[in-house]
Simulated assay, not measured.
Amino acid sequence: MKPRPKRRAIATLLALAITAAAGSVQAWGDIGHRIVAELAWRQLDPAAKAEVQRLLATDGDDSLADIASWPDHLRNDPEHEALGKATGPLHYINFATNCRYDGPADASARNVVGGLEKYVAILGDRHRSNAERAEALKFVVHFVGDVHQPLHAGNRDDKGGNDYQVQFGGKGTNLHRVWDSQMLYTADLKWDAYADKLAAEGPVKLPRAKGDAYVQWAEESCSIVARPGFYPNGHKIDDAYVAKYLPVAETRLREAGKRLADLLDKTLD
Score class of each variant (00 low, 15 high):
250 E>Y: 02
242 V>F: 07
50 A>E: 13
209 A>F: 01
251 T>H: 10
69 S>D: 06
206 L>S: 10
8 R>E: 14
104 P>M: 06
248 V>D: 04
60 G>K: 01
84 G>V: 01
174 N>I: 04
134 A>L: 05
262 D>V: 00
180 D>R: 05
14 L>N: 12
52 V>P: 03
194 Y>S: 04
80 H>I: 03
165 Q>M: 05
257 G>C: 03
122 I>E: 06
115 G>V: 13
31 I>V: 14
257 G>I: 02
112 V>M: 09
28 W>V: 10
1 M>C: 11
109 A>M: 08
21 A>I: 13
189 L>H: 12
229 G>M: 06
169 G>I: 01
260 L>H: 10
181 S>D: 05
262 D>S: 07
250 E>L: 07
122 I>D: 02
265 D>N: 15
46 P>S: 08
20 A>E: 15
56 L>D: 11
88 G>L: 02
43 Q>V: 06
82 A>Y: 03
98 N>S: 13
249 A>R: 03
11 A>Q: 15
71 P>R: 01
212 D>K: 05
118 K>T: 14
9 A>N: 13
117 E>A: 15
142 H>L: 07
243 A>M: 10
238 D>S: 08
2 K>Y: 13
197 K>I: 01
90 L>G: 02
112 V>N: 12
147 V>C: 07
181 S>R: 10
70 W>K: 12
69 S>K: 04
129 S>G: 04
251 T>Q: 14
18 I>D: 13
263 L>P: 00
17 A>K: 12
193 A>N: 12
130 N>V: 03
14 L>G: 13
232 P>E: 04
240 A>T: 07
245 Y>E: 05
251 T>G: 11
130 N>Y: 14
64 L>Q: 07
8 R>V: 11
175 L>D: 03
111 N>D: 14
185 Y>T: 07
29 G>I: 06
203 P>M: 01
184 L>S: 03
27 A>G: 15
100 R>C: 12
207 P>L: 04
242 V>I: 15
89 P>E: 01
223 S>V: 00
222 C>N: 04
183 M>R: 05
196 D>R: 03
81 E>F: 15
132 E>W: 08
129 S>H: 07
266 K>C: 00
170 G>E: 05
26 Q>C: 14
56 L>F: 12
161 G>N: 07
252 R>T: 01
186 T>Q: 13
15 A>H: 10
231 Y>T: 12
137 L>D: 09
172 G>F: 06
147 V>A: 08
101 Y>H: 12
160 G>S: 03
70 W>P: 06
52 V>N: 02
140 V>P: 03
147 V>S: 06
112 V>W: 08
178 V>G: 00
206 L>P: 11
199 A>T: 09
106 D>Y: 02
259 R>A: 02
87 T>A: 10
63 S>C: 11
177 R>H: 10
18 I>F: 15
4 R>L: 14
49 K>I: 02
77 D>L: 06
62 D>K: 06
35 I>V: 15
15 A>C: 13
196 D>S: 07
68 A>D: 11
